[in-house]
Design a protein around this nucleic acid. Structure first.
Lengths: 146, 146
DNA sequence: CGTACATCCTCTAGTGACTAGAGGAGCAAG
DNA sequence: CTTGCTCCTCTAGTCACTAGAGGATGTACG
């Protein structure tokens, strides 16, 4: 059926860049495909699906290790999906926290920019607020790796 | 006035970890402090302020290079604060985008988790949505390094 | 058939902002 | 005086890629 797809084609079809595909192979996220006579990687439709799955999961902010688990779950359709549910739920909690944190930050930045006198640094709210922690209403619980 | 503060004390006072302080010195974000006889770093109140400024800026999501600019602005109070204003404004735009993106993501995750049959993987929405891009309402314009 | 050019290969090293650990020296309290 | 904490330097690791060197292969056109 599926004759070989080149890495370039599987890349544009999946939206994952060529070096990233090779990287995924290197870390064992994507199986090593067979090679042609000329040593080029030769992918099939399953690989394309898998790559799309990965790209989509990455877009949704899942980490590589989480994707590894999700992929292995996908390969075993008879297993309970509790684990997948847990991963997604945990992720949802994280996302909600980040939104809350970023919303607070947004207000803080608005306060800074609106308060800016557009004059000299001496009277600038932006610098002022950053320098004096007490004047700030935003306090991150988790230092944001957002 | 200010006799030397140890790195440990300046760390707990500022909320920046000890190795991170040394790292900031290494990349030139924090000036190298004088040393004691025993070769320990000896900080003063100004360093503590600077570190607090840095930590606060990092919490607000500014990058090191942006902080470098903000710090140099702080050192020259007679300069126009336009640049600081621009940095904060640009950052505000980014933050708003991130919030929008994360909110879409949140809905997508909720859809996944709510739709989960709590049964076998075969019928699990979580896996399903990740696998089939067409069923997904969330499409990131900028792959989220959030 | 030749030649240009795109695409592919492997490999190493770099990014940002730290974090972890090894191996050793100084210092304060009991 | 010894125990244990803090400090020192240095190297290497983290995550998820990205960039570039240097070379092989495949394809389109004249």
């Amino acid at each position: 059926m599926s004759q070989g797809i080149t890495i370039g084609n599987v890349s544009s079809a999946s939206g994952v860049k060529v070096p990233t595909i090779r990287y995924y192979e290197q870390i064992g996220l994507l199986p090593s495909p067979p090679r042609t006579e000329g040593n080029r990687r030769s992918y099939d439709a399953t690989d394309l699906e898998r790559l799309t799955f990965i790209r989509h999961s990455r877009e949704l902010g899942f980490e590589i290790d989480e994707i590894r688990t999700l992929l292995s779950l996908q390969d075993q359709p008879n297993v309970s999906c509790e684990e997948a549910d847990q991963i997604a739920s945990k992720h949802l909690v994280d996302v909600k926290q980040k939104i809350a944190s970023l919303t607070a930050l947004q207000h803080e930045l608005e306060r800074m920019v609106e308060g800016c006198s557009h004059g000299r640094v001496e009277t600038c709210k932006v610098i002022d607020i950053l320098a004096d922690h007490g004047k700030c209403r935003f306090h991150a619980d988790h230092p944001p790796h957002l």
